[in-house]
Design a protein around this nucleic acid. Structure first.
Lengths: 342, 342
DNA sequence: ACCTTATATTTACGCGCGTAAACTTTTTCC
DNA sequence: GGAAAAAGTTTACGCGCGTAAATATAAGGT
């Protein structure tokens, strides 16, 4: 076993008994060479440690095999989870995922897109910051790079959008909460993205169609530290007795997690049925929602489907040359997850 | 404003009135050219949209400006947070961070190192899986790429290690718990990394030095879904009445979060003082520990310092050619974070 | 103005690979 | 077995940039 390092394809060609252009073909698609040749190459690769220089490989390509994945806030396990799903599918499809987090910061998001552009990725899956996004910069980016938006939509930006059907999912939980107790009050902070707005509107619509009066508690807070906002504003709202009903529907689970902490601290027992002072529900089925005390009733976003469809859509887009005939929007329905909190 | 695209340095040289090699110098270090030249270049860059082809830039470099960051499990906000800190510092220092998560999977960790190697990174910050890591593969990687381990140590692998002083931090909380109530029982699952072992040993040592009898509850479970293990095994342990004392110290916060959920479900009031059935404490000061019900008493790992020192150590390593004279180990002390749960 | 020193320019080559064209060999199939 | 098709080889060029050497120009000090 001669472990002497092979420096380039030329040398590998020499020891494998195959020409360099054939090696080039092999590395770009092992299936494109005859089986006997493939075996010769693989045999040589077993013996000698060689991997192609990816920089040389990519410099003359118009497109690389990279796929960029950009999420707004990775410290939110929801995005970590969806990122993981997307990564896995990209790898399976022979692409190289590169994961980035904007960390809630507009400049960071712009910088990421800037770096991504020079990676010449085959495509990008982008969950934009939303309201804080620099729309023009994202638009410009999408002109150059095939991009599918997910989670948070920006009208007419990117070639497609995949997300949740907030109207359906909020309708679902509003109906459930109204049917089983006092109608819910909607608890929200200033919206970071269109989902928040859609959820509020969906809540109002759902309440009205049930003949109920909508109640929205809008609290202060900014940034992506939703739990903190839910907690501190929850303490304030509860202290000031500003809860119109004993049922709160939070704009998302992270806010609900904060509110649960506030309720606990203020001595309000959260849950449904006799002996409970408050019902709290969320939205998203955040990975931690199963482990709150009490466990959080919520609506599950179908991450797996969102991830799968986003990737699928991107791959179709890539195959068809990067431009969609028309911008497709795919929304997945949520599922009610009944736990102990409401 | 002629927005016609510049295709390469040659063309930029033409319109900026500067030679191509000078441009090359500029892009590798803007400070290395005379101010008047820099201004000419920057002026041209304002007018024309150009960015160097990173693949061409890097193919002849022995080392690139990339820094790899590898964490074992990104859906754990602890790692997301520390990853964010590290990213920020790398960017400030002019490097390009690339973040990867092993997702608790040995193969994935190996594959990441494999991809990283071909990125020719200036250095890598690696938080290994730990017990599940393929030691030989990591060792081999560290021979080729300057690597600093953090969070979880592998003896003699990598050029340095930065982490937490588990003996100090566990000692701290054991002392606190013993002083303020019944001595703690240690609650752990099969260790995924050396920290878990160190913490158990630290617990036993601390108890003995206080003249108390250590009690370890070792539950089943594998993988990185710690909350689930804490919850389901917590339910079992509580149901079977296997808690020797009313105070539980969990090996980490995520386990504690699961156990809190179990205690809640079993109707045990968690907290200190009269009227509470159980005290639960954790370790790490996980981002969500402030928002559990009750909020979790724990020991804070000093993420910021760990991130800072890791990066600092790596940069020193890079500057000194990638090899440390001797392997340095830096451990940061934890701080007691008293909240409501214990 | 002159000399020194710091910067730029010119010229030239190489990196490792993609890829095209023309040609040769192997496989496939009737 | 022979022709067509498929796959591999040879040759050659180019990508965009790093970088070295020789040369030219500008800046700074006296």
């Amino acid at each position: 076993m001669d472990e002497s390092k092979i420096r380039n394809m030329e040398e590998l060609a020499a020891v494998s008994g195959v020409s360099r252009p054939t090696l080039s073909k092999f590395f770009n698609d092992p299936g494109s060479v005859r089986e006997s040749t493939r075996l010769k190459i693989q045999e040589a690769l077993e013996e000698y440690d060689y991997r192609p220089n990816i920089f040389a490989m990519n410099q003359n390509r118009r497109l690389t095999k990279y796929v960029g994945i950009v999420v707004p806030y990775l410290a939110d396990p929801f995005f970590a989870e969806i990122g993981r799903n997307i990564e896995r599918r990209c790898i399976q499809a022979g692409f190289w995922p590169a994961l980035f987090s904007s960390h809630g910061d507009t400049h960071r998001e712009n910088d990421i897109l800037d770096s991504l552009r020079s990676l010449k990725p085959a495509g990008v899956l982008l969950a934009p910051l939303g309201r804080a996004s620099d729309r023009r910069i994202i638009e410009k980016f999408c002109e150059d790079v095939p991009t599918v938006l997910f989670d948070s939509n920006l009208d007419d930006v990117g070639e497609a959008f995949v997300g949740s059907n907030n109207f359906q999912s909020i309708g679902l939980i509003v109906e459930y909460l109204s049917r089983t107790g006092e109608p819910p009050t909607f608890f929200e902070m200033p919206p970071v993205n269109p989902n928040a707005n859609k959820r509020r509107r969906a809540y109002i619509g759902a309440m009205e169609s049930l003949g109920l009066t909508p109640n929205v508690i809008h609290v202060n807070g900014e940034g992506w530290g939703f739990e903190e906002v839910g907690y501190s504003e929850g303490i304030r709202v509860i202290s000031e007795g500003r809860l119109p009903t004993n049922t709160i529907l939070c704009s998302n689970d992270r806010l609900a997690i904060g509110l649960l902490a506030a309720a606990y601290e203020k001595g309000l027992r959260v849950g449904r049925g006799a002996g409970f002072a408050l019902r709290i529900a969320g939205h998203d089925d955040h990975p931690f929602s199963r482990f709150t005390s009490p466990s959080l009733t919520t609506v599950a976003q179908d991450y797996a489907s969102i991830a799968e469809r986003s990737v699928e859509t991107l791959f179709r887009l890539i195959e068809s040359g990067g431009k969609a005939e028309k911008r497709e929007t795919t929304l997945f329905d949520g599922k009610l997850v009944m736990r102990a909190s409401a």
